[in-house]
Write a protein that binds this DNA or RNA. Structure first.
Lengths: 345, 345
DNA sequence: CCGGTCGATGGTAGCGCTACCAAAAGACCA
DNA sequence: TGGTCTTTTGGTAGCGCTACCATCGACCGG
């Protein structure tokens, strides 16, 4: 037994939060019964369960999930790792993921990674350290060291928002190359002969840019201008990007941006310069943000069903959690993407 | 001792993640020494520390922070609760908070709350359950039950993004009423006589709207139109909002929106209708989002230094963590807000 | 009226790690 | 060389909770 804190001091201001033992003592039952009353009430006589609940309420008792998780080896917690500055593109994914997990009694926490690798490594380490029942990653993991750690942790992992033939475990995503390719297709079919790119410097945006260039080249069209910007992207970068593209070559007739934020900026810059969109300049983005349908002109973009990714990720995770043994075959889901043709292209 | 798993099976595919005991055994030291080698390397002979590190790397060992936290009663973790759908207004706050905490060796996790109360209660319960070293709340807590729980948990709490005379513990925020009031002041000084409002239905947005109306009334000006929208706000709601305001009263001469997203939507709707901004219609928003300086016309808005809130919140938390005893006086920091006058008003 | 069964309850033994203390091994001095 | 001080190491005892098993009446049919 450790030292008992003086009852006099404890009276008004307990130094430590209440524990299950405190609750049990007040309710006049054993800790075991108190635990059951709170978690599996049907196994306990109703009057005792009631007394336990009352005692818990009186003490402002909140179960220590750290201890519970350690004892039961299940945390009922899923941690999602999302890049950087709360990028709204992921909003639907996270929202749907959270919804589905909640429905099955799992909580979701988010870890924010920077766009740079070392910090991401550290974050994933911490994430594993908390031994969640599942991990959802936004983006696939490239660092071999991290993949090793993640695989060694024996925690179900879902990578999202990208496709790769070799996921660590499970994968729900789409091809960023195809996003770029279908944008190129759309723009060229509408008659563009001098398309330009504004692309952020993260992996996935780069892949979209590469996909665009490849598809254009296949049709004998060269990229007429290219601006690289730093992730995360902003509207201002889009404005500035168009300005720079026009300085380099005023005859470009279309711009594909790696995000809708950039594209919206391009729209504003075009408006400020009196450049008619889409007649003189076609503009496309990626992400189909909540606002993109309501810009003026409304933005043509490549949409991904983020909510579906979230739902599928949750489904894979929950299935695995329900039947861990059935899980050796790795699962890959491609949700695809589609061009949403609106006014700007 | 529990049952030992067959060595034959363990060989290639360990069923459980490696533990500190595994590492210690391989390195040929006691678990205690292994623990020190990993956490306080200076207390251990260099050769042994090296052996431990090598063993850890070989086993893809990631320390179980759940167990460590339980044993040491410190998790080196802060959990921030943010409302709903990754609203970019909070991006700066979260980013700065994370940065500061990281600098001191604390990790940050995010819990997403819905805009509705019951779900928020549950989330805060879970959050407390994980016994973080600190909790940062975006918005003040109103539910008395939750306040009781939070106070009982003996975890340092920082409420943010709002002011109240009675915080649970610490508070860093600004007055949403004043935000509205200074917007009103700005608009009226510029000559508006028929200002209108587009305001979301969450607490804080409501407070901004109320502040606006009160300040206008004080100057003898009545609100000429008012549209309520559901949080979280989007550009589309802004467009739609202006349309509805104009239908009700075409002579309104200014619009104050409870967010920059809404205001940007208003800008687009005005552009689509050929309404000149700010000559015919002045537009103001709130939040000074990263894009707001680059709309066309650029958006006049009320800015809050989100990064400063994050930094102050981190500072308060870290001070408390460093000297828990010195903490009985509760601390309140008001970071204020300011009008950023650009082209739209 | 007794063995068998079942639901309710309690006791025990950890989960994986670290705080704390004791012991051992060097380092150093007279 | 013996003693003192300082490192370095290991053992023990939990952190707060739950899995698991033992126990104990109550209740059943025979």
């Amino acid at each position: 037994m450790g030292p008992r804190r003086s009852l006099i001091i404890r009276k008004r201001a307990p130094l430590r939060a209440a524990t299950l033992a405190d609750v049990a003592k007040i309710a006049g039952v054993s800790p075991m019964t108190a635990s059951r009353a709170l978690n599996q009430a049907h196994l306990v006589a109703t009057d005792k369960a009631e007394r336990v609940r009352a005692a818990a309420a009186r003490l402002a008792y909140v179960p220590n999930r750290i201890a519970g998780g350690l004892a039961s080896q299940r945390s009922r917690l899923v941690i999602a790792v999302v890049p950087g500055t709360l990028n709204p593109v992921f909003a639907d994914l996270i929202h749907a993921l959270r919804e589905e997990l909640l429905r099955s009694g799992y909580q979701l926490f988010l870890g924010l990674s920077d766009y740079d690798m070392p910090a991401e490594d550290e974050l994933v380490e911490t994430t594993i350290g908390h031994r969640p029942d599942g991990i959802v990653l936004t983006g696939v993991v490239h660092s071999p060291q991290l993949r090793f750690r993640l695989a060694g942790a024996r925690i179900p992992v879902v990578e999202t928002w990208d496709l790769t033939p070799t996921p660590i475990d499970m994968l729900v995503g789409f091809s960023n190359e195809k996003v770029g390719a279908s944008a190129a297709e759309h723009l060229l079919r509408r008659g563009s002969r001098k398309p330009a790119l504004i692309v952020a410097d993260d992996h996935r945006a780069q892949a979209r840019g590469a996909g665009f260039a490849a598809a254009a080249a296949e049709r004998g069209i060269a990229i007429a201008g290219r601006v690289a910007v730093r992730a995360p992207t902003t509207l201002g970068m889009g404005r500035d990007g168009l300005a720079r593209l026009l300085t380099a070559d005023p005859r470009i007739d279309a711009v594909f941006c790696s995000s809708d934020q950039l594209a919206t900026g391009v729209l504003f810059e075009a408006a400020a310069r009196g450049i008619r969109v889409p007649e003189r300049l076609a503009v496309m983005g990626f992400g189909d943000l909540s606002g993109s349908a309501h810009t003026h002109p409304s933005l043509t973009t490549v949409a991904v069903d983020g909510a579906r990714i979230g739902r599928e990720a949750a489904r894979l995770l929950l299935e695995r959690l329900a039947a861990p043994e059935a899980a050796r075959r790795s699962r890959i889901v491609d949700v695809g993407s589609r061009v949403v043709a609106r006014e700007s292209a």
